[in-house]
Design a protein around this nucleic acid. Sequence first.
DNA 1: TACAGTTGTCTAGATAAACAGACAAGTGAC
DNA 2: GTCACTTGTCTGTTTATCTAGACAACTGTA
Lengths: 244, 244
Amino acid sequence: MADKVGISRSGVALWRQVADQLRGAIDRGEFPPASKLPSEFEIGRQFGVNRHTARAAIAHLASEGLVQTRHGLGTIVTRSGRLSYPIRLRTRLSTGLSDQVASIISRLLGTQEREATPSIAAELGLRPGDSVLELETVSIAADRPISLATHWLDAGRFKGLADAFEATGSMTAAFRKFGIDDYIRRETSVLAEGAGEAELTHLDLPKGSIVLVATGTNTTLDGRVFHLTRTRFAADRIELRIEH
Amino acid sequence: MADKVGISRSGVALWRQVADQLRGAIDRGEFPPASKLPSEFEIGRQFGVNRHTARAAIAHLASEGLVQTRHGLGTIVTRSGRLSYPIRLRTRLSTGLSDQVASIISRLLGTQEREATPSIAAELGLRPGDSVLELETVSIAADRPISLATHWLDAGRFKGLADAFEATGSMTAAFRKFGIDDYIRRETSVLAEGAGEAELTHLDLPKGSIVLVATGTNTTLDGRVFHLTRTRFAADRIELRIEH
DNA sequence: TACAGTTGTCTAGATAAACAGACAAGTGAC
DNA sequence: GTCACTTGTCTGTTTATCTAGACAACTGTA
């Protein structure tokens, strides 16, 4: 064959499907922290796979730090899943997660000025061909990278924003240096997809991982859009909580 | 080996990773409808895989109806991606999608009464052990299933809701028969995970697919929670748009 | 100590995925 | 028609995944 992809050929290894299901179950609280997972044999039976396949799934969860296996004893759930990231009218990274995790830091990966694409120009209220500032940042919570974000802003207005961000480690703080003391999230789009090269690298993900992609539009209080952001979250480390 | 899962072993086939990346690119507008994809050879080169692997990825997208290959000509993008489902203070399925698709219908898959789990009882303001009504529904837009939802409500108050839903095909309409003319979405959580057995079946997905899981809390106008819902969307058919 | 139940490790074979190369066949431009 | 470029189809080979069975090693309990 070597060709032709039918519906039977899923393209996702069995052990990974089992691991993903187990992670979901742990996440939903079906296996709370400190509880025991069923035995390898039993998990294999439940999912209709060989014990060795179930074993590979468990090994994967162990490598994520979600469970711990103990020879002769069984597998114990060590922590339960995802951080919960609030998306609201005032969406701020550090304040949103500060009660769930000890440390959150953001780093600047790179910055450049480029000509605005038509869609970005339209959203930012610029003329096509105007210059936009593009920042690439990564956020790390409790020593694990959780999100990779691209930011777009009017290059003329926000000259030096990258330095301000690097100095403060916060977009909100950097905006303040440009006279924006408050801003509002007008809209956020969320989708899920397979991780690309950049996400694999900067979020330290294994190939084939899922990312949640949140595209946000921020406005000043007068309703003018000044900031577009496209944030990719490691799907197995976070959930988004929308508050109205 | 047959054991041990390292970072090199991703558990997701290469052709699927390529297909997912291409789908994302099409979705972001990098390949608009009617445009041509690069050749199989070129795609293989770009992703560092064999032409046959690239070919399998394209065949997969073709089976999804996203592209069409023509012998001697190339591969053409036939439609671009996802529906956009708005999540807002008043989140309603049919009104949210009606401008994007001709027909939306919802069907009842099943219903049962069961004892409330502690967490569901707490959210609905019931006593642990009280009886909750559980509905399972599927929604189909333009002949493709897009979401599978589980609903939880107070069984005492909403006796007969299943019939009302079946008669109207709408939760909003069914609620009206119970004196709820208006209701508000208080909170929504969004995460992404691998599809489980039920999702594969009812959303007609190939194994290993990704689902977006939105868990919502609806209240009456006086702020009392009366309805919990857990909706699973096929991630490659929809994005969620949060409006504040 | 004996035991049931668990994880750890090995061997072996079957199936699927991926790579590599070759050539046929369709298409549009010249 | 010729040409460059494309997809379609074939033959292999190599590597990864999954299954199967066996037995060792560890743990808590009787």
